[in-house]
Design a protein around this nucleic acid. Structure first.
Length: 286
DNA sequence: GCCCAGGAGTGTG
DNA sequence: CACACTCATGGG
């Protein structure tokens, strides 16, 4: 099935290609291909009109896409609030179509456990391997992300044979620790409690817990700090220190939309600043 | 070959 | 609390 919907502002290339989600790839014809649930989805856009193709298709497709792209977020309003920060304001103007995505909680948890201390091309490859070997076939060349029930029946030896390194043991243990309705129980927790519960899982520390809170459970005040964010905070705000210190600074500075602020800082620091020396702040320390 | 990566776990001061 | 060290491995 094919149809068009309107989401604005939206830049698919920024949103799907910036490293917050790992299963989208750009096809030869320019459309983004990925999987949401058991749907194979292709997305393209002309201005504010987004073109959707889905297989097998059905009534739920539009809802899946709108949920994934957080279509109900008032992104203009959020950016207006964040632009009160003069440092951030300079960068947001070129990132108006960059939206936070909403990933399935289970997929998000496993993805970011795999993402520890790896670069994005490798993370993409690991998740593709996991889906190819253990997911269910949707169409040729695209499997669903493996469910918890499926993954918990995979022996550690099979996971250790995927090139995951020490991460194989973590996801194997996480599958065993989580029971059937753990994810749905997590949804009802406060952000603070959710973060603590996530951190009890093997392979989940401060940063992974914040990524899963933000991209999986939609807690927009979560502020994941990786090496790029650490650099950005040091370079643009002259803030350094422990994870908790930086997190408190971000929460005071960016408030309930810290997650969006994080994504703008991340994109700028990782993809834009190194390439064309274009910075939120004109100065450059070193 | 070298350096680094959307870090976590563990032990120590 | 803060650091130091280890863990495995592929991409650039």
């Amino acid at each position: 099935m094919r149809f068009d919907i309107k989401i604005s502002p939206l830049d698919l290339d920024l949103t799907l290609g910036c490293g917050q989600t790992f299963r989208w790839r750009k096809a030869a014809d320019g459309l983004w291909e990925g999987a949401l649930g058991n749907q194979f989805i292709r997305l393209g856009q002309r201005g504010s009109v987004m073109h959707i193709e889905a297989s097998p298709g059905g009534r739920e497709v539009e809802r899946l896409v709108r949920t994934h792209l957080r279509a109900d977020d008032d992104v203009r309003g959020i950016q207006k609030v964040l632009a009160e920060d003069p440092v951030l304001a300079a960068g947001i103007s070129e990132l108006k179509g960059l939206r936070i995505v909403k990933i399935d909680e289970w997929e998000c948890l496993i993805s970011f456990i795999l993402a520890t201390y790896a670069n994005i091309p490798r993370i993409t490859k690991m998740i593709e391997t996991l889906s190819t070997r253990f997911g269910e076939r949707i169409v040729a060349g695209m499997n669903s992300f493996p469910s918890r029930d499926r993954l918990r029946r995979v022996p550690l030896s099979a996971l250790s044979n995927c090139g995951f390194g020490y991460r194989a043991k973590f996801i194997h243990e996480a599958c065993k620790v989580l029971d059937d309705d753990a994810i749905s129980e997590f949804r009802g927790l406060s952000h603070k409690d959710l973060r603590e519960e996530l951190k009890r899982l093997p392979g989940v520390g401060d940063k992974v817990a914040d990524c899963v809170s933000l991209f999986g459970f939609g807690r927009l005040d979560a502020f994941p700090i990786d090496v790029w964010i650490e650099r950005a905070l040091g370079r643009l705000y002259h803030r350094r220190g422990s994870y908790n210190r930086l997190r408190e600074f971000a929460h005071e500075r960016f408030g309930q939309y810290a997650g969006y602020a994080q994504e703008y800082l991340y994109y700028n620091e990782r993809l834009r600043a190194p390439r064309d020396n274009c910075l939120f702040s004109k100065e450059r320390d070193n």
